[in-house]
Design a protein around this nucleic acid. Structure first.
Ligand SMILES: [Zn+2]
Ligand SMILES: [Zn+2]
Ligand SMILES: [Zn+2]
Ligand SMILES: [Zn+2]
Lengths: 132, 132
DNA sequence: AAGTGAATGTAATAACATCACCCATCAAAA
DNA sequence: TTTTGATGGGTGATGTTATTACATTCACTT
């Protein structure tokens, strides 16, 4: 397991910025917030994000081209994870469902599909945004 | 239900090109294939795709920024649909699973999340690509 | 004919992501 | 000690995906 203290300078900067942001952020948003810290090139951010995703500290939200910190960074291995993304406030909630995982793995088995990863993102309006 | 014969010229061109392609294609790939037909601007393709997606004739694959024709265009309403995307050959297979849908709708209910759509894309290697 | 809304044509720009190249550091191998 | 390889970093250029803005055309209605 990669610990936070093993992160390189740029990885730490990006991770801390994303954590502070508290919601999904694009690579360019992160870059904008890190100019003062000395970052000036998208590549610096993408490289850090690649590693953070590899370490499981950050997840990529494919349907909004954004990144978000893992809600359960202490789990060495998650199974398939899902996100509920609010189209009103931009927040995302990470969750997982063993039954969904089982069904997707089952479909893969049945169709001789060698599953490497799954993207499960539900879009809509979160509780906070629907009470209003 | 929108019938194929209701499509406008550009919509037909894009739909036919995508159908002929027989696999997911990016908007720019489609545009390249339609230069001879007179299309020259990405916007023309994106506008057509927007409508085709709205009509349910085409789906967007969020994790690969590509579009694919619906496998079941005669279903007036699909429920939540999923795709198995082969990272080797680029093919995508559309499927759906009522149990997965039920679980995602259940999670949404439980968390007061008003679900508008779901992105379910599994990535890996298809049967044809694993026998090799 | 004039008004309307949908579709289209087009240039420009925005947003997202990668490539190419070079340099620095550090540790293992020779 | 010197070499080598792996990893991280800085930077400019480029590639890819998507949208905005605005003018025009077309089919249809009044
Ligand atoms: Zn996580
Ligand atoms: Zn919300
Ligand atoms: Zn379909
Ligand atoms: Zn394949």
């Amino acid at each position: 397991m990669t610990q936070l203290q093993d992160l390189t300078r740029n990885q730490s900067l990006v991770f801390e910025r994303l954590t502070a942001h508290g919601a999904p952020a694009s690579a360019y948003d992160l870059l904008d917030g890190l100019r003062d810290a000395g970052l000036r090139n998208p590549n610096q951010v993408y490289r850090a994000l690649d590693k953070l995703v590899e370490y499981g500290l950050v997840h990529r939200l494919e349907s909004i081209n954004a990144f978000v910190t893992c809600a359960h960074p202490h789990d060495h291995k998650h199974g398939l994870i899902a996100f509920a993304i609010c189209e009103t406030c931009g927040q995302a909630e990470e969750f997982s469902d063993d039954f969904v995982e089982e069904r997707l793995r089952g479909w893969s088995m049945d169709h001789a599909f060698r599953l490497s990863r799954a993207i499960i993102e539900i879009r809509g309006a979160c509780k906070a945004c629907t009470v209003a």
